[in-house]
Design a protein around this nucleic acid. Structure first.
Lengths: 159, 159
DNA sequence: TATTGTTATACTCTATAACTATA
DNA sequence: TATAGTTATAGAGTATAACAATA
């Protein structure tokens, strides 16, 4: 307990919260801010974060399978169906038969898909440049490196 | 395009993805890992991240209103109803009439609520200590500071 | 036996819009 | 007019379980 009655406004006391000392809480709050700005940046393109991520992988690894994309993104492969449907509806990719494995629908980006990926990547670059304008290159690299270590489950200071 | 055909496994190529250079993507992936571990840590307690956050604020600011908690957490106040209902059902708090403003239901933590908060905070401390065991105190502080700057929309390198 | 794509399904999170009581 | 609590509702996001075809 800190004060009684409650503080007058959220900002008055935000810095005193024990929540603010938790990495998980700060991660979540920061993520919400970035996702919100991402959405604004993708407004014209209409790509969700997941759709962009999938398109990005498919553009860089033509003929990859849905399951492979799912593994790279760390999501269940069942969720890839709707995303693939969406990207196919936009004519950003085609499902093509795989010669080597008849279970697989190889995902082939179209020219429109490659172009959309390039456009999106540029817009996201601008969005991150704007959002992190005050972060030095070192700070940005440090942030990414720390986040990568969390993702990889590695605890060692120097990966 | 990097390779054709697709790489053999997700891990082979993960480091080459352009996604890996994006802060937003890394933020999301790291957040998923931490949230997953948080859930495991809260298994016995049965508290969702949001329920814990709300309980934490209410425990530290007795008699705070739902709307005030919502503002602190950065979520819409409509979402607070279900969380408050849940915490009240667990007998972790009571809705009490506010003397000063009859619109407000002041949220009063019970002894059980304070105890649950203390237990949860301890378990979360252990969960974060485990998850970030290999991060130096400096690295943890740096991470939190960088995340805070994102949340606050401040771009300046030093607070 | 294991994996791919797929469907059905369900659950969580969260926002918007509207209502009422009150300020 | 504005705010508090509330309800109804809807849309993401994502997981689990199952199935047929194929490996």
């Amino acid at each position: 307990m800190k004060t009684d009655p409650a503080p007058r406004s959220a900002e008055d006391s935000a810095d005193a919260l024990s929540l603010d000392g938790l990495i998980g809480y700060n991660l979540k709050r920061a993520y919400v801010v970035v996702r919100e700005d991402f959405r604004r940046a993708m407004e014209d393109e209409g790509l969700s974060p997941r759709a962009f991520s999938a398109l990005s992988i498919i553009a860089e690894y033509p003929n990859i399978s849905q399951s492979e994309v799912a593994r790279m993104l760390g999501v269940d492969r069942s969720g890839m169906v709707a995303i693939t449907d969406d990207l196919e509806r936009r004519a950003y990719l085609r499902r093509t038969a795989s010669a080597r494995d008849r279970r697989v629908q190889a995902l082939m980006p179209t020219a429109a898909g490659q172009a959309a990926h390039a456009r999106a990547l540029r817009k996201i670059g601008e969005h991150e440049a704007r959002l992190f304008a005050g972060f030095t290159p070192d700070e940005q690299a440090t942030l990414i490196a720390l986040l990568r270590r969390i993702r990889d489950g590695r605890s060692e200071p120097e990966g």
